[in-house]
Design a protein around this nucleic acid. Structure first.
Length: 228
DNA sequence: GCGACAG
DNA sequence: ATCTTGTCGC
């Protein structure tokens, strides 16, 4: 598959340089809808093995809106960046980009496991993957990194704005009634309103989107003895 | 200085 | 994220 990947930048850098790269690339993020018809949605996730020394990048592509599994791809690479709050993309994006490149067909939209704009420099993992891959992305995190909010209503579909000062940086969305909400934010080429619609469409039954669930299962799957 | 802190 | 079994609740 041919990804319109933007000229990359070094990945093994100091935290200070990584933050500088984020601040620069944040200018490339497109916050409005610029996505075409969505027929395939991908979920991406990272898992670890060998005590964290090996990174497992998983991508699951589902047909939309049916949400049936279309393609899966798992790729292993040595882990080369630690987990530092605010710098998660430097740990996970390199392997995810490689995995996307290996897909038979490019997805029309990607739901990422982590923040998008809801980040100190407005450049979370979803923005980073979107800007470098050129594919529309949405940030879907299970917990908060930054921002303040009022608890959303108890029903599925209820949501409240996540803000940082005067700025709305995301939405705290209930995808399942009486269950902890998700933190949705713009990744790249998808507005917040559209992002909320897609997350709800991809999570018809469980708290997490089916895309994320499929990718997570693959990323944390136990080694199965192969035949042949 | 102290507390917060995606996965 | 990962280490890990049973258990409380709808």
């Amino acid at each position: 598959m041919n990804l319109p990947v933007t000229a990359a930048h070094p990945w093994v850098v100091s935290p200070a340089l990584a933050r500088g790269i984020q601040t620069e690339l944040a200018r490339e993020v497109i916050r409005e809808d610029r996505l075409g018809p969505v027929h395939r949605v991908a979920g991406v996730d990272i898992g670890f093995e060998a005590g964290g020394r090996t990174t497992r990048a998983a991508v699951a592509v589902l047909d939309f809106p049916a949400l049936t599994l279309r393609e899966r791809l798992l790729l292993k690479r040595p882990t080369r960046f630690p987990y530092i709050p605010g710098l998660l993309s430097f740990r996970e994006v390199p392997a995810l980009l490689e995995a996307l490149t290996g897909l038979r067909h490019a997805p029309d939209l990607i739901l990422c496991d982590g923040q998008g704009l809801a980040h100190p420099r407005r450049f979370g993992l979803a923005c980073h993957l979107g800007v470098l891959s050129g594919i529309p992305t949405i940030g879907v995190a299970k917990s908060r990194l930054i921002g303040n909010y009022q608890e959303p209503g108890p029903e599925r579909g209820d949501w409240s704005p996540l803000h940082d000062g005067d700025e709305v940086i995301g939405a705290v969305l209930r995808t399942r009634s009486r269950t902890r909400p998700l933190f949705v934010s713009i990744g790249h080429c998808v507005s917040l309103a559209t992002a909320i619609d897609y997350v709800l469409a991809c999570a018809p039954r469980y708290r997490l989107p089916e895309t994320t669930r499929a990718a997570h299962r693959l990323a944390s799957e136990k080694e199965t003895p192969q035949i042949g």
